[in-house]
Simulated assay, not measured.
Amino acid sequence: MGREGAKELWGLDLCTKQIETARNVLHDQQAEVTLIESPMEENPGIPSSYFDIVYSIYALGWTTNLSLTFSNIYSYLKPGGVFIFSWEHPLHDRLKYEQEQSTFIFNKSYVNEGPEYNEGWQNLAVIHHRKLSTYINALIEAGFMIEKVIDDVCLPDEQSENPARWYSTQKANLVPATFIIKASKS
C-alpha cells in the first residue's frame, strides 16, 4: 500500500513478534507507519472515521469477539470506506482425509460454532469456528454493506502429492480453502 501511494500505514496485531516483523518489513516506506500491539476486540486509541481502507489477511478469524471487532473496524472507517478480509473457509477444517478409505469425510459439524482446537496447528491453537453466515450477518449488524463474497477455487493443473496435507488440491476440489469479503461503510 505504501508503494502505491498511501500516506499512512497502520497495523494492529496481538503478537509482539508480528509487530516486530511488520516494523522490519516496513522500515523503508515513504508512508508514515504506526504499529500497535493490541487485541482487535479493543480500540487502543485508533481514530474514528479516519481510514479509507481497512483490510485483514488471514487474521480476523482469531478474534474472540467478532461483533465487537467489526464494530471497531466500522468506527475506524470514513463514510464510504472499504473493509476487505480473508479467512479460512469454515467448511475447510470440517473435512479430513481418511487414509484407510482414501477419501475425505466430514469429521466435525459445520453448524456448531465456538472455540475449538485447530487441527492445522496440531491442536496448539484455539480458534473460534464460525459459519460463513455468521461473518456475513455480523458485518450487517455492525452497519456494513456487503459488496462481494468470494469463495471460488482456482486450482493448479497438477494435484498435490499428499491429499492429507492441510491445504491440498484434492481437498480444494471439494470445498474452498478461503473466503474473501468486501464490505463498505455507508
Rank of each mutant, 00 (worst) to 15 (best):
A22D: 11
T69H: 11
V25G: 02
S56G: 08
E20K: 08
E98R: 01
N173E: 13
F104W: 00
D152Q: 11
R23W: 04
Q30F: 15
L132H: 05
L132Q: 07
A22H: 10
N123G: 02
Q159E: 15
Y58S: 12
T16M: 10
G120M: 09
F85Y: 03
I127P: 00
I181P: 06
I57D: 10
E32F: 05
I36M: 06
V175E: 00
E88S: 04
F144L: 01
G120T: 04
E88I: 05
F51E: 00
F104K: 09
I46D: 02
D157G: 14
F51S: 06
N72L: 12
P115L: 09
P39A: 11
T134Q: 01
A164P: 13
D28C: 03
K17S: 14
N24A: 14
I105G: 00
E20M: 08
Q101V: 05
Q18G: 15
I181G: 01
Y167L: 13
M1H: 10
A142I: 02
S75M: 11
T16R: 04
E98I: 13
N162Y: 14
M40T: 09
R94Y: 03
E37N: 07
I105M: 07
E158S: 11
A164I: 11
L77N: 01
K108Y: 01
I84G: 01
S67Q: 08
L12V: 05
V175N: 05
V54P: 08
E37F: 13
F179C: 10
E141M: 02
I136A: 13
E98V: 12
I36E: 06
I146G: 10
G5A: 06
Y135T: 01
L132S: 10
T16A: 13
D28W: 04
E88F: 09
E98H: 01
S160D: 14
S48I: 13
A31L: 02
I146R: 01
T178A: 08
E116S: 14
V82F: 05
D152M: 06
S109F: 03
Y74P: 09
D13R: 01
T103K: 06
K148Q: 09
Y97C: 04
N112C: 07
E119P: 10
S184A: 05
N137S: 14
P79K: 01
G143V: 10
R94D: 03
I46Q: 05
Q29N: 11
I136H: 12
D93K: 05
